[in-house]
Design a protein around this nucleic acid. Structure first.
Lengths: 329, 329
DNA sequence: CTGAAAGCGCTAACAC
DNA sequence: GTGTTAGCGCTTTCAG
C-alpha cells in the first residue's frame, strides 16, 4: 500500500505538494499538479483515512442512532439522511440501539473518541442528564425525538397534531368509543401524541376508558394480541388509534381471523403510511410522516452546527403530518 | 479533550503504561493499573480512535454493502451481521449501494483507504474483474450473492433449490400455467433460481411461456404492474412465482382490486417470508430465507480471514431454504 | 508557488 | 514491570 511519501518520491516533489493536490489547494502549478496526479494514478494511491482523521481532527462521519433498522420508518429515514449527507461530502454511521440504554451510551462515545464528528439521535433511551456531558465533544441533534430537558436542536413532527388529527377523524366518522395504543416508552413523542388524542376526545365530551389504552404496541404481533384482548372484553371500543401501521396491520389481520369486519366492527387508524398500509385489506387510514423532509432538515441543521462551530442550543423545528384516508375507518 | 499524556501525567506514570492498561496487557502491577484507571476516570479520558487506527493499522470495522436498506431482507440481514460482529468486538459500517455501480466502487475504496478491515458484499453490481484488484487490500466475502468468477468465499442460499421447491409446489397443487418474476439484474442468484424453476417445469413436461416471464420485479408497485399486465392477456398464467414477498403482495392487492380471487384465479408464491406475508389476505405461501443463519455464517467466515490473515480463496457455503405454505397457492 | 519540519495521539520494540 | 523512543501517514505552519 503506497503512502504519500511514495507518491512524492515518484513525482520528484515534496509530501507537502502532494498533500496540497489531494486537498484541492490552490497555488499548485498546473504542471506539478499533473505529475502528482499521474504518480497517484500509477501507484494506485489512496490516502489513509486514519492518518487524515488524526491530523485534521475530524472524520466527516456523522453517527445516526436508530432504535431498529428493521422498522421501515427508520430504514427510510436513514436513506434520506444518507442522501443529504452524501450531497455534502459526509458519511453516516448507522447505529442500531435496539432500544438499549447501554448501547446508546456506547454509540454516543464515538463522539468522544472522535470516531464521528456529530450525532443524530433518532432514538433516545437515556435521561438527558446522562447524555448532556457528551454534548461538549460535538454537536448532537435530535431527529423525530424529544426530550424536554435537552439543550440541543430537535427536528420533529407535530405529534400532538397527529394524535389530534387522527382521533378527530374517527370522531367525525361517528365513532365515540375510541381506544388508543402506544409503545409505552418514556419518550416525549408519545406524550404529545396522547395529548392530541385526549384533546380530540375532550372537545366532544367523549370519555377515555382506561381499559382501552393499550401499551407495548410496537409490531404486528402486538396488534394481534391487542385485538384478541379487545375481543374478550364485554365493553369493546369501536375504533382504535394504533399509533403504528404495523400494529394496525396486526389488529386488522387478527380481526378478520376472528370473523370481524373492519371498519364495521372495529375501525382502525395507523401511523406512518408504510407500504403495508395500502396493501392490507381494507386499505389502512393512516397518518403520513414526511420522512424525506425530516431527514433533510435534520442533516441541514447538523451541517450548520458543524461548519459554524457554534454551540448547539435548544431549538425546535416542527414539521406537519398528513392524514391519508383509506377504508379502515 | 484529554490525551494519553494527560492521563500519564496525572497518574505519574509513562504513556506506555497507560497504553498497556487501555489495551488490557498483562504485566502491569495491580497498583499502577488502579491509578491509571482512576486518572482515566477523573479526566473522562477516551482513547482517540483515529490515533489507534493509524498506529495499529486496523479499525475493527467491517463494511457491509447492501443494495437497499429499505428492503426488509437486508434490514434483517444487517441486524444479524451486526449482532455477530458486536459479539466479536467488531463494528459494521452499512453501505447502501442503491444498486449503483459507482457507489459500490466508492464503498470498496474504504478498504484501500483503511477505513475498514474487510468488506461483506450482500450486493454486487460490478463485474468481478473490476473488483478483483481491491482484494489485495483486505478480505472480501460475498453474502447471499454470487459471481462465478469471484475468487473469494461466498455464503449463500441454495437459490436453485428455492426456485425448484417453489415451482414444484405449484405443480403439485395442479397448476400447469406458471409464470415467473425476477429482478432483471445480472446476478448469479437470479440465474440459479430460474434454473430451479426451469427444472421443476421441465420435469413435468410443462412449457415455459416467454410472455409469462416478468422482469424488473422488485417492489409492491411492480407486482401491481405485473398483475395488470396479466389481466390484459388473452392467455393468462394460473400461478406466479414472484421471487419476492413484496412483488407477491402487489400482485395480490391488485388482483383483489380487479375482482379476482387468489388462489382460484391466480395463485401466488412469494420469497423471503417477510412479515407482510402473514398479514396479507390470503396468507402468502413463500420461501423462507434463513437470514440470521446466513448473517452469522458470513461474519464467522470474515472473522477467520481477518484473524488468520490467510489469503481468501473461493469457497462456497450454502444454506438451505424452507417452504412456508399458507393460502395464496 | 514549494519544501522543511513539527506533530496529531497512540502503540510497540527495546532497554533497563 | 516500567520507561524511552521511534514512528504510523498525513497536514500545516513557516520560510523562502
Amino acid at each position: 500500500m503506497p503512502t504519500i511519501s511514495d507518491v512524492a518520491r515518484l513525482a520528484g516533489l515534496s509530501r507537502a505538494t502532494v498533500s496540497r493536490v489531494i486537498n484541492h489547494h490552490p497555488y499548485v502549478s498546473e504542471e506539478k499538479k499533473e505529475s502528482v496526479l499521474k504518480a497517484m494514478r500509477d501507484l494506485g494511491y489512496i490516502p489513509n483515512s486514519a492518518a487524515q482523521n488524526l491530523r485534521k481532527q475530524k472524520t466527516n462521519i456523522i453517527a445516526v442512532l436508530v432504535p431498529r433498522l428493521t422498522n421501515p420508518f427508520f430504514a427510510y429515514l436513514v436513506e434520506s439522511l444518507e442522501e443529504k449527507a452524501a450531497e455534502n461530502g459526509l458519511q453516516i454511521l448507522i447505529c442500531n440501539t435496539k432500544y438499549d440504554k447501554q448501547r446508546e451510551l456506547d454509540f454516543l462515545r464515538y463522539l468522544k473518541s472522535k470516531q464521528v464528528d456529530g450525532v443524530i439521535m433518532a432514538s433516545i433511551e437515556n435521561r438527558w442528564d446522562v447524555i448532556e456531558g457528551i454534548t461538549l465533544s460535538g454537536p448532537i441533534v435530535l431527529c423525530n425525538e424529544y426530550s424536554p430537558e435537552a439543550k440541543v436542536p430537535s427536528v420533529r413532527l407535530n405529534q400532538y397534531q397527529g394524535g389530534y388529527m387522527g382521533t378527530s377523524y374517527l370522531v367525525k366518522q361517528g365513532y365515540t368509543k375510541i381506544g388508543y395504543c402506544w409503545g409505552g416508552i418514556l419518550s416525549g413523542l408519545a406524550h404529545d401524541r396522547y395529548h392530541g388524542y385526549e384533546k380530540a376526545m375532550g372537545e366532544k365530551g367523549l370519555p377515555i376508558n382506561r381499559n382501552w389504552l393499550f401499551e407495548k404496541a410496537f409490531c404486528i404481533e402486538d396488534g394481534r394480541r391487542i385485538m384478541n384482548k379487545i375481543a374478550s372484553m364485554a365493553n369493546k371500543p369501536e375504533a382504535l388509534f394504533t399509533g403504528s401501521d404495523e400494529v394496525a396491520a396486526g389488529v386488522i389481520a387478527e380481526a378478520k381471523k376472528l370473523g370481524l369486519r373492519v371498519p364495521e366492527d372495529i375501525a382502525v387508524i395507523g401511523f406512518d403510511d408504510q407500504s403495508i398500509a395500502e396493501v392490507i385489506e381494507p386499505g389502512l387510514t393512516t397518518i403520513r410522516q414526511p420522512i424525506a423532509e425530516i431527514g433533510a432538515k435534520t442533516m441541514e441543521v447538523i451541517i450548520n452546527l458543524l461548519t459554524d462551530e457554534q454551540i448547539p442550543t435548544k431549538k425546535i423545528y416542527e414539521l406537519p403530518l398528513e392524514l391519508i384516508v383509506r377504508e379502515s375507518s
